[in-house]
Simulated assay, not measured.
Amino acid sequence: MGEKKAVSRRTVVAGVGVLTATATLVACSSYEDDESSDTATTEAATTGAAATTGAAATTGAATTGAATTPAGTALGSSSTIPVGGGTIYKTQKVVVTQPTAGTYKGFSAVCTHQGCTVGTVTNGEIICTCHDSHFSATDGSVISGPAKTALPSETVQVSDGTVYLT
């Protein structure tokens, strides 16, 4: 038979590098669900139905005038957001709270401590269950750490009973 050629160390190392990079890319890729609003809703200490109005509400105060369909992503029904609580939209990485009846606030659902998605909203607090950081459902500020930075605000509107991320 023919002579066998020796494979250089450089060729072996390069081959291992390509295999490692491929395996890393496959392992780090994420699978996205088809559902547009994968939600985790938690009960508030105060129970009751969410107020729904024809007027649009934003991250600050309610706007007056006729309701129009805002540009943006429809998240779901405002009735799923309890007063004093909130709903986490995992796919969009946003949490929408209703600190008081008819006032809706939007925040990033990504914890500022180590990037986990927050897990619950209860008793006026957004809680990251990874390391137990607590944030205010009213303004996103840190109530207790280890997180040291507030959750960034997201702009949300409510129009005809639907919550929009705008």
Results as ranks from 00 to 15, higher is better:
49 A>R: 15
90 K>R: 14
165 L>Y: 04
82 P>I: 01
61 A>M: 07
63 T>L: 14
79 S>K: 13
94 V>Y: 05
98 Q>F: 12
98 Q>T: 12
116 C>W: 03
147 A>S: 14
86 G>A: 01
155 T>F: 00
20 T>Y: 04
118 V>N: 04
49 A>V: 13
78 S>V: 10
123 N>G: 04
118 V>Y: 03
52 T>A: 14
70 P>A: 07
54 G>A: 14
83 V>N: 01
35 E>D: 12
77 S>V: 05
37 S>W: 14
135 F>W: 03
64 T>L: 10
107 F>A: 08
62 A>D: 07
71 A>C: 02
31 Y>K: 02
40 A>F: 13
68 T>D: 08
111 C>Q: 11
36 S>C: 09
147 A>N: 12
59 T>R: 10
99 P>G: 06
121 V>C: 09
132 D>A: 15
43 E>P: 13
1 M>H: 15
161 G>K: 04
100 T>Q: 13
122 T>Q: 05
2 G>Y: 11
34 D>I: 12
157 Q>E: 10
119 G>D: 01
29 S>Y: 11
97 T>C: 11
116 C>I: 03
3 E>L: 12
57 A>W: 09
118 V>R: 01
137 A>L: 01
117 T>R: 02
112 T>W: 01
83 V>L: 07
3 E>M: 12
53 T>N: 12
14 A>S: 03
81 I>Q: 05
76 G>Y: 04
67 A>R: 02
76 G>D: 05
100 T>P: 06
143 I>L: 15
132 D>W: 10
75 L>I: 02
163 V>A: 06
27 A>N: 02
106 G>K: 08
75 L>F: 11
25 L>A: 14
27 A>E: 10
163 V>G: 03
51 A>I: 14
61 A>L: 12
97 T>M: 08
79 S>C: 04
105 K>C: 07
165 L>A: 04
82 P>M: 03
23 A>V: 13
69 T>P: 00
138 T>K: 14
92 Q>Y: 00
68 T>I: 10
87 T>P: 04
136 S>N: 08
85 G>D: 09
63 T>A: 15
162 T>H: 10
159 S>Y: 01
124 G>W: 04
7 V>T: 13
129 T>D: 12
63 T>M: 13
145 G>R: 08
133 S>L: 02
24 T>F: 11
84 G>N: 05
154 E>Y: 13
100 T>M: 08
9 R>I: 06
68 T>M: 06
115 G>N: 05
39 T>G: 07
34 D>R: 12
139 D>E: 08
131 H>A: 09
